[in-house]
């Protein structure tokens, strides 16, 4: 088993089907812009206005990872997103208004007000709710994949996590089990180089998360996580491997957390130069540039995508804000089946 290093040229689209490429790029741009705008609204507006309480975690600067990967998911697949993968929810068809309702603690949120922020899921959309204990979802992904294979479907599990989560025992148990049982899992690591205040070097003694793949007998690839086309291309390889019954595949998407750990963290421990450097590699700007260079779309068309996203977010926030809070009388129901 070897590690495939990041190879930007691989993501270059084949010019032959340029129309299809343009269409795919448009979808990518839409979902990335939607994630950016949604999270900006959550973190910079609604949270500051006190309409969202508790912890707020966003994936600003990491949008290419959930978008480039989840666009490969088929209806029968099941995804286990991390706390920085908002776009996965959009791609799986969760209405935007329900996501704002979730963050605002309203009945129409995916958890009906019982849980907050990105701690949400919907099995009918193939989405397992985030487990707050980091990496606890990795063994769960193995079980999901086991069930998909058991039932004879072609489905696979997408297991998402950050670099820091790979320090947990659950991660190692889940990955080892999936490799031993040759389960169809695609692991998508967003290596944003910090876990809360801890830089990667405080998390692991090896240089890359991908280095761990071969140790478990699993192919691993390092991907430019700020290049959505590269993420898409690499995920395509990983998905083909898993669907063909060859077992799990690890993608390490190198990126950077362009925020604090959460809305209350000013990230003073991150050298400002790193933010500046990574701002230049903004995945949305990079995709736009690529779209223009390749003649897939012009500036006006791109601006129209952003305008549409803005409107959709406005409408979703307005809708969510009108939704009621849960009735306290419902507090005790549905702890068990049939209540």
């Amino acid at each position: 088993m070897s590690i495939t290093p990041a190879c930007p040229s691989e993501s270059e689209p084949a010019p032959a089907n340029s129309a299809a490429q343009a269409e795919l790029a448009r979808r990518m741009l839409y979902f990335m812009a939607l994630m950016r705008e949604t999270e900006d609204r959550i973190e910079r507006k609604l949270y500051r206005q006190g309409k969202i309480l508790g912890g707020v975690y966003v994936g600003r600067g990491q949008e290419a990872i959930p978008v480039g990967s989840a666009l490969h998911s088929l209806p029968e697949d099941v995804l286990l997103p991390s706390h920085r993968d908002m776009a996965v929810f959009f791609i799986r068809g969760i209405p935007l208004g329900r996501i704002f309702a979730q963050y605002m603690g309203r009945v129409d949120g995916l958890t009906r007000g019982r849980d907050g922020n990105m701690h949400m899921g919907d099995m009918s959309a193939g989405l397992v709710a985030i487990i707050s204990a980091l990496a606890a979802s990795v063994p769960v992904a193995a079980g999901v994949a086991l069930a998909l294979r058991y039932r004879g479907t072609n489905g696979i599990a997408f297991s998402y996590f950050g670099d820091g989560s790979t320090s947990r025992g659950d991660w190692h148990e889940g990955v080892n089990m999936a490799t031993v049982l040759k389960l169809p899992v695609v692991y998508v690591c967003n290596n944003n180089q910090y876990a809360y205040s801890t830089p990667l070097s405080g998390q692991m003694a090896c240089a890359n998360v991908a280095d761990r793949g071969p140790a478990y007998g699993m192919p691993a690839e390092i991907v430019d996580g700020n290049d959505v086309l590269a993420v898409y291309a690499a995920t395509g390889r990983a998905v083909a491997h898993a669907r063909a019954g060859h077992g799990p595949y690890l993608l390490e998407c190198k990126t950077f957390r362009m925020t604090g750990h959460s809305a209350h963290d000013a990230a003073e421990y991150v050298p400002p130069a790193l933010f500046e450097e990574w701002a230049k590699r903004d995945p949305i700007l990079r995709l736009e540039q690529r779209m223009i260079e390749n003649g897939w779309d012009d500036r006006a068309a791109i601006d129209a995508v952003h305008a549409r996203v803005h409107q959709e977010v406005d409408a979703a926030v307005a809708w969510a804000d009108e939704r009621p809070f849960p009735d306290p009388a419902t507090l005790s129901g549905q702890v068990y089946d049939g209540e």
Binding site: L53, G113, G116
Partner: peptide
């Protein structure tokens, strides 16, 4: 508190 997980939404948490 009642026998439920700790809910998030303010009216639920207050009731809890």
């Amino acid at each position: 508190a009642p026998d439920t997980p700790v809910p998030f939404s303010p009216p639920l948490e207050e009731a809890f």
